[in-house]
Design a protein around this nucleic acid. Structure first.
Ligand SMILES: [Mn+2]
Ligand SMILES: [Mn+2]
Ligand SMILES: [Mn+2]
Ligand SMILES: [Mn+2]
Lengths: 219, 219
DNA sequence: ATATATTTTTAGACTTGTCTAAATTTAAAA
DNA sequence: TTTTAAATTTAGACAAGTCTAAAAATATAT
């Protein structure tokens, strides 16, 4: 079994492997975990000893197969609990992260299997992120960023990249949720902002900061 | 906020205050927590520094008001999670303890309030133990041990004292659950065993070990 | 290519929670 | 009331996880 701390490191490394370059750097991990670079170095050595990461001094890390399996399992638990909190306990999608951050470390395969069944085998969490399967496969998704999407095509919101309260509450205010229909009406070079139309006909202007954090799919 | 370890100590001390004498001894705590007496002494000093226990060298401990509030909150969370596991995730009552032991440490008042509502404000856990209220009151119960009960009176099972798998599975096998109707037909001085009749008419002989671990109420 | 800045690692320390072994206190027995 | 036994505490150690400050390595800029 692995500690909360080890699990958090593995999860963050996995996350950074997806979004950033191949070899994840010490500082990136430190920022993500709100800790110090020296602490990260210490932990990377321990994880390397346990064959959970490939670590070479000054070169950053990658997860080993074993490390990835554990990371995906933590992500799976995190996202299943988020679904539980939103679907069953009526949490809002901007309120679930901190609690799921704790719940993801509960050790019981039976618990997760039954929770999965209770929730009707969801494939996405409340933020549109895919839930890894029991056998450690992360479902693929061919979404694109709204900021890279084209005008006059009907898309639907599939996922939010940034799970911060401020973005989630912003989207709430403008009635944009997962599966919302959205069409780009106009794009502005000056600041990369855009005007979009929602299914209820309402027109909105979104900054690049927003559109670069919302994934969409062809409807 | 308090650590898992501190919470476990407070919970166990609370438990021992109820079942044993007033001042809880170091060894009792050590046994209950599967740890060493010297570790307990160390922790008692820390808890005393934080004003959570009244501790005098060689004299054992009692919880302070503050300590009791925290202990009752942990017990509340433990028991609510047990209800969740049994009622919603179809766990058997002998399978929930270890998982609840972990879940009881999740920190979120909002989570517990909503879980409580989701479960319909239960007052007892799957083992018949009362669930402390949000404001730290432990509901009273005037149950008596089956071993102290009288013959030819109809009782109902209210609670099990021992939550071990072996007792719970024994009761399962003989279809004795919380709220089961039970009448003592005969008591035997020789080994303090007894013959009881269940509502379905079935007669059973129970050892003292069993009857001394089952609480009943007048029906 | 050399100097400067940034990143990463080491060295040494601290906290929490635990342990063993030895000393001390309290309780029980002779 | 001694003596013996049991319970409790102290002393000293260790692992996990973190930190600060300083050294070493790498990347960037002139
Ligand atoms: Mn976490
Ligand atoms: Mn999420
Ligand atoms: Mn616990
Ligand atoms: Mn219980």
């Amino acid at each position: 079994m692995f500690s909360h701390s080890e699990e958090n490191y593995l999860k963050v490394i996995h996350n950074l492997e997806l979004t950033n370059s191949k070899n994840v750097s010490t500082t990136l991990i430190a920022n993500e975990l709100q800790t110090k670079a020296s602490s990260v170095t210490d932990m990377l050595k321990k994880l390397a000893d346990k064959k959970l990461v490939n670590y070479e001094k000054y070169k950053g890390v990658t997860l080993t197969k074993q490390g990835e399996i554990i990371a995906l399992n933590v992500v799976r638990k995190h996202r299943l609990w988020e679904v539980f909190l939103v679907d069953k306990l009526n949490f809002n999608w901007d309120e679930v992260h901190e609690v799921a951050e704790q719940l993801e470390h509960i050790k019981s395969d039976q618990l997760i299997d039954r929770l999965d069944a209770f929730l009707n085998y969801p494939t996405k969490d409340p933020h549109g992120d895919p839930i890894p399967t029991k056998n450690g496969k992360m479902p693929l998704d061919n979404s694109i960023l709204l900021s890279d999407a084209h005008a006059d095509i009907v898309y639907e919101v599939s996922c939010v990249k940034d799970n911060s309260k401020s973005l989630l509450q912003f989207l709430d205010k403008h009635a944009i949720t997962i599966n919302s229909e959205i069409t780009i009406v106009d794009k502005f070079d000056f600041d990369d902002s855009m005007t979009v139309k929602l299914s209820n006909g309402i027109l909105l202007t979104l900054s690049n900061k927003v559109s670069a954090n919302v994934f969409v799919n062809l409807k």
